[in-house]
Design a protein around this nucleic acid. Structure first.
Length: 498
RNA sequence: GGCGCCGUAGCCAAGUGGUAAGGCAGAGGUUUGCAAAACCUCCAUUCAGCGGUUCGAAUCCGCUCGGCGCCUCCA
């Protein structure tokens, strides 16, 4: 049986117990990208949030059906394409490729379905037809509009009343009411168009998600999510269309919205505000896990200020966890756990205690509206205990049974949050691969200086050794003299422009 | 004008009725040739302010101040 959990429902504005439409199954629909540009770190937050939800629920035994769409037919795509003299779908195709590259780099799991508007026209036209037949939509000059007046519950998601809404400055010809919205837009010359009972045209922004959700998940979605900025009008309109068309069951049982990434000034990051920071830009110099923990440190519903300066700190958090994982991985021994625990003292017992209760505490936090910040706190506690234990002389040779409990706990992070999925060694190498070029360094150059310093130390030429170390440190390399070897790491307090 | 969110240490942040998780930075210590990492100790009588409810509030209510989002481009 899948584990029960609670989540905040935007519809009720309360944290509710989750009950699925079908026992054991969770049908997720998250709004994906409109592909007219490269994705930025604000999009990444939404994507990591949905990824976390899908990963975690699957980890907890739910049969997860995860849908994330691509909007590849859209006004902005058409405009961009016209500006560049490119076919709209070709432009969309390029940005889908770019987006997929980013999603892979972010380590996002692949959704069950990734429908595209351009290949969902049948479902879209069918749904609009149903709305017209049921009297919820009307055709006018080749366009079809949703008649908001026929859906009394309009505004229930965003808590707004039609009367209170600001009226647009200009009336749009063909619309009965300013709040009515387009289901189908008649094609203008030169625009991409698909055939329909109302003539050539293309879908309005909102209908696509309703149609694709119906197509992939059926009339009732369990959790529908997206950024907070989609609550109105996008999701409000989806509810109106879908519930009016289906005439039964709620469109989505739960609405989940992630807080927006804001700028230091507090304003949100948005393409229209011209203050974007690209995913590619961030991942060029930092491992994906740094970005991921940057998001996961904060509850998904809170606004999150974007601060590039904080990326090294985020990387430090991941590095700290990997350090513990690495320490645990290096411990050996196959004695019975009870023996090791008894003979290696209180620090071993502490690891056993924290590691064996980890799942319970981690799950409790996650089951309460996906409290990743709290859940991660437990991981840091465990990491400290592991590191403390690893200082014991006997830990490396005999601590294995204790360490394996900790590794089992860390494995939960990998499955549920997409963190700590690689070995400690591999992570250190990844950091070097990303950070060395960002700091203008090469492995060969570093190794060369390091070798010279090792020689100087062997000859006890401390001044020369210290001078070489100072050079490395200035460049951004931290030298670590271990008892058995010399190790080095990337300093996180040195910026690339230094 | 309408709807809604937020304000916790120098910084990030969890906690939403029972007496402040976690991380960074900082101070001292163990370790080290010296460092670094790691570990240990310390670091908010207090949760924007003012009232109220309560045996008890950061947590509930009211007001004030400050910041932000949405009201048909937006993850």
């Amino acid at each position: 049986m899948p584990a029960p959990f609670r989540l905040y429902n935007t519809l009720s504005r309360e944290v509710e117990d989750f009950t699925p439409a079908e026992a054991g199954k969770v049908k997720l629909y998250f709004c994906g990208m409109t592909v007219y540009d490269h994705c930025h770190v604000g999009h990444a937050r939404a994507m990591v949030t949905s990824d976390m939800v899908a990963r975690y629920l699957a980890h907890r035994g739910w049969d997860v059906v995860f849908v994330r769409n691509y909007t590849d037919v859209d006004d902005k795509i058409i405009r961009r394409a016209a500006e560049g003299g490119e076919a709209p779908l070709a432009l969309a195709e390029r940005y889908i490729a770019s987006t997929q590259e980013d999603f892979r780099a972010l380590g996002l799991i692949t959704p069950t379905h990734e429908p595209r508007v351009s290949t969902s026209m049948g479902a879209i036209v069918q749904m609009i037809t149903a709305l017209v037949e049921r009297g919820h939509a009307y055709e006018s000059e080749g366009s079809v509009w949703f008649d908001v007046a026929t859906f009394p519950e309009y505004g229930k998601l965003s808590g707004q009343r039609v009367e209170d809404m600001r009226q647009p400055d200009e009336a749009v010809p063909g619309k009965r009411s300013p709040v009515d919205f387009a289901l189908w837009k008649a094609a203008k010359p030169g625009e991409p168009a698909w055939d329909s009972p109302w003539g050539p045209g293309r879908p309005g922004w909102h209908i696509e998600c309703s149609a694709m959700a119906l197509d992939t998940l059926g009339v009732e979605v369990d959790i529908h999510g997206g950024g907070l900025d989609l609550v109105f009008p996008h999701h409000e309109n989806e509810i109106a269309q879908s519930e009016a068309a289906h005439g039964c069951a709620p469109y989505a049982r739960y609405w989940m919205h992630n807080g927006l990434l804001t700028m230091a000034s507090g304003q949100k990051m948005g393409k229209s505000l011209g203050n974007v920071f690209g995913i590619k830009e961030a991942l060029k110099a930092f491992p994906a896990e740094a970005l991921r923990i940057y998001y996961l440190q904060v509850h998904y519903r809170s606004p999150l200020p974007w601060n590039v300066e904080a990326l090294p700190d985020a990387l430090g958090l991941v590095a700290r966890l990997y350090e513990a994982k690495d320490n645990a991985e290096q411990m050996e021994g196959d004695e019975p756990l009870a023996v090791v625990t008894r003979e290696l003292g209180a620090d071993a017992a502490r690891v056993v205690e924290l590691a064996s209760s980890f799942r319970e505490r981690f799950y409790a936090a996650m089951d309460d509206d996906f409290n990743t910040a709290k859940a991660l706190g437990f991981a840091f506690e465990l990491a400290r205990a592991v590191n403390r234990f690893s200082n014991h002389k006997k830990a490396k040779k005999r601590g294995g049974p204790v360490a394996r409990l900790a590794l089992d706990a860390f494995a939960v992070l990998a499955e549920a949050l997409g963190l700590l999925g690689q070995s400690g060694d591999a992570f250190v190498e990844e950091v070097k691969d990303k950070r060395l070029p960002a700091l203008g360094l090469t492995r060969e150059g570093v190794e060369e200086k390091l070798a010279a310093r090792v020689a100087a130390r062997a000859a006890k030429e401390w001044e020369r050794a210290d001078a070489l170390r100072a050079e490395l440190e200035e460049a951004g390399i931290q030298v670590m003299d271990r008892p058995d070897r010399v190790d080095w790491r990337i300093r996180l307090d040195v910026r690339e422009d230094a």
